[in-house]
Amino acid sequence: MPNFTIKNANLYYSDFQALKDINLNINDKNITTFIGPSGCGKSSFLRCLNRMNDLVDGARVTGKFLLGNDETDIYKISDVSELRKRVGMVFQKPNPFPMTIYDNITYGAKMHGIKDKKKLDDIVEKSLRDVAIWEEVKDRLKKSALGLSGGQQQRLCIARTIAIEPEVLLMDEPTSALDPISTIKIEDLVGNLKKDYTIVMVTHNMQQASRLGGHTAFFLNGEIIEYSKTSLLFSNPKEKQTEDYITGRFG
């Protein structure tokens, strides 16, 4: 069952049309990966899903983006904070705030009104356990998050996002700045998280997309060329362009 339904979506940056008539059903409690060459619009599309494009001067979105069982049109939500609480985002480069690990995790919760110390402690422990770094950092919760390694920082950023219990987790090439071992750890983690969250991930790495499974959309020049089960898309692409891309003929 779809958690996010996108109908006839277009995105313009001033005069430039970055996305053309996108139609997509993103399935609940599953992982959906976006692949495609640089500049194909996959990251731009991801940023439409939590309205980060609102921050870009001249960006304009048309179409319907219906979130959750209540089919809320996210572009009709007046308080964008409500949307971003439901749709979290993890970035390409780990971007922990320059504060303690504890404060990083509780940042979102405090902002959304949780003040009880005990509750916050629980949130910190649960989120860090969910991303499997609790054992590594439990003795240094009050130390700066900037002292962590890149891979740990990225897991902290994921923990920070799931601490506010979103429905959807957007990830914009979350492993492209990490070493192979950290990458595997994040992939394992994402595999576990898809039980509880709807995950949408942009990746440059086709092996990664096929390892993660779920569904995959292939973007090219602002359009979705093909969207199907990941195993199907990689083993038996329907479109010529998809085949050319995944066999490495371009991109």
């Binding site: 971003r84 979102g108 959304h112 920070r160 996002t161």
Partner: peptide, 12 residues
């Protein structure tokens, strides 16, 4: 990226 991270968590 600090600002983006904060906005993405719903902060104004």
């Amino acid at each position: 990226s600090y600002r983006m991270g904060s906005y993405a968590l719903g902060a104004g």
